[in-house]
Design a protein around this nucleic acid. Structure first.
Lengths: 210, 210, 210, 210
DNA sequence: AATGAATGAGCCTTCATTCAT
DNA sequence: GATGAATGAAGGCTCATTCAT
């Protein structure tokens, strides 16, 4: 009713936030209910009380509203699809790589891909499929009818592949290039590179095909 | 050394082979020593006896000879760097995606990236660093001095990102595009796309920068 | 007292009724407070609030008025002790076996015998001891002074043993004789058998001893 | 090989023996793996190692050889069925009530009847059904063709009911008759009573029917 | 008075590992 | 040298109970 949340909802929220951290850090299998509850300052039984099971908690921890908002905002940002791609990649990479971002869902999502749980179906239908469709439309606007649908799909994969690489390979990159830090500037530069690389490729490929 | 292996060494070899299968299938954390020993027809204690620990077995199970051979052969395949990139990508994607490939190490490697264990250091120094260097030299040959070192590095990342995407996202792609099969033809088409996309991008970027 | 029960007392009554069902179905240990509260439409904490503990609820759920009424009515039913035994066994077996009987206490009682809880003392003093005494008097009337007190006691046990057998062994009998149904006719036949078997035995034993 | 059992088999045997004690004392649900392992001087994980699960242990703990031997021996003990019934009841009650008896299975069996687990099917088919058949044949020999099959079956139930009563009601009888002790003499007297009571009943019933 | 939330002890089970042979 | 047996820490989860409101 009021803006003061009940104790229950606070605990619930703390559990979800802690779960996002721990799932993002250790993966679903590696995460333990005990660690999640410890971070949330709650009892071991709290997860089962509020969410029924570890699986149930994962399902709740996944929230793609940030990703959806990003796409919605992008659609009305600029009439030029190239500019919109640049903008989207910048926002998307910030969400994916910024350690301070509250949107850890992308990381959980990424871990799911490597080790699917029953929650993957939800992730695919609610987050990944719309994301693919969104990028598919953007690519279509950019390349027009100069590419087959199959080619356009592979271009989407090429863009997403470049993005996810920086997330997946983070521990490796830290070892190979210890000076690398994912601060706002670096993330912006990475996003700009992916945008220019991809636009250049699509531009060249359509020209060549024409 | 001789062609008569002791029973002990046979068991050792079977354990390594079984470990590769199980690690590739379930990841390091999800794999159990019992399952590995069961597949190898060995005792539960065999892993600790032969390799000291589950970690030790992982270290032994990692073998990058296939990846190294691929790079070595590539260097002498053709004087043209663009052609060598196309060739490398085809071989690399076959190794990464072909289910019948004996080279499961790439899959273990890929899982490690998502869930680092102490073995990651070995993977990075023995496989990934050389791979990055190899691709770095190839990119350098292609773009010459028309790109900064930082830009060249990002191009390497863009290429590798496109490659690893098809591996990481396999379970998702199976859901989004159930008709997709990673047979030899499809893998070849994927590799060709990555090659053309990347070459087009690098070509365009160097031209534009010039 | 008045016909307007407070909500609290209604909840209390619903809890007791639900407890009888659940205890009868799953036994004391197998029953859960949550299930009882769920059936009673009450809060999880209601049991401890109203009865202090699960044990306290059991104590309250036990109500032997049906059994007592049965004995009281029997005493004035007929001057002939043999007839009264036949009548009592019929009523008692109906109470024990009829699934539609509201008097589930006998079932709870029977489960207690197999798995005693602190409530057993109450059951023994309020229900079983009077029942044994009642049957003891009836047997005494039938065999008169032709049997020792010890023999009479064993006759009481023989009668009660035959009765309780049909309750305890129900799940087994269902497996051995799937066609068996405890309907009113069958229960009547069972009670008649126990009566005739026991009366014949006592008759013969007193005659032989004489 | 030798008459010296391996350590494994000793532990296994100790676990089974401890399980019989604990299952008999607390029932399957009330028994804990920890308590069983504690009594057996084994680790908590030993039960799952040797028997796969608590259920598996129960299945192993049930061993009806004693009961079978008793029946087999009885068949050749005497040509007179009345004498054989007396003998059987004495042996059976000793097995059922003697606290020092190694044959605790009967107690586990009895608890199962009150709270069936998946093991009940095994108990019924391997122990109870043969027992019922054995007693059925004995009763048939005694009453000949002077009783219907249905009547004979109820006589078997009357005999078994009297026997099991002393087991089921033990905690109650201890409260009502604290002086009662199930020593060999008392058990013999109980068995004799059940035999005479039942034989007298069957004798009288057949005579009456004739 | 009465409840939703939270508790912590305890459950069975699984695991990589170590021990005794 | 090599193994079946045994270990104990830890896992997710359920439970009767208690707490704060």
């Amino acid at each position: 009713m009021s803006d003061i949340q009940s104790g229950s909802e606070q605990t619930r929220a703390r559990l979800i936030e802690a779960a996002r951290e721990v799932f993002a850090q250790y993966g679903f299998q590696g995460a333990t209910v005990r660690e999640i509850c410890r971070r949330a300052g709650a009892n071991v039984a709290a997860v089962n009380y509020h969410f029924g099971s570890k699986d149930g908690l994962l399902a709740e921890a996944l929230n793609f509203s940030g990703l959806k908002t990003l796409q919605t905002n992008n659609l009305s940002a600029d009439p030029c699809p190239e500019k919109r791609l640049r903008l989207f990649l910048k926002d998307f990479m910030l969400m994916l790589l910024d350690e301070n971002s509250a949107s850890r869902q992308c990381r959980i999502m990424a871990r799911e891909l490597a080790d699917p749980t029953p929650a993957l179906d939800k992730i695919v239908s609610e987050a990944i499929a719309p994301l693919h469709e969104f990028l598919g439309r953007l690519v279509c606007e950019i390349v027009g009818d100069k590419m087959s649908a199959a080619q356009q799909l592979r271009c989407v994969f090429s863009i997403l592949g470049q993005c996810s690489f920086y997330y997946h390979t983070e521990p490796v990159l830290q070892r190979l290039h210890p000076e690398l830090r994912y601060d706002a500037d670096e993330i912006g530069a990475i996003a700009a590179h992916i945008a220019e690389f991809s636009l250049a490729a699509m531009n060249q490929l359509t020209r060549r095909d024409a």
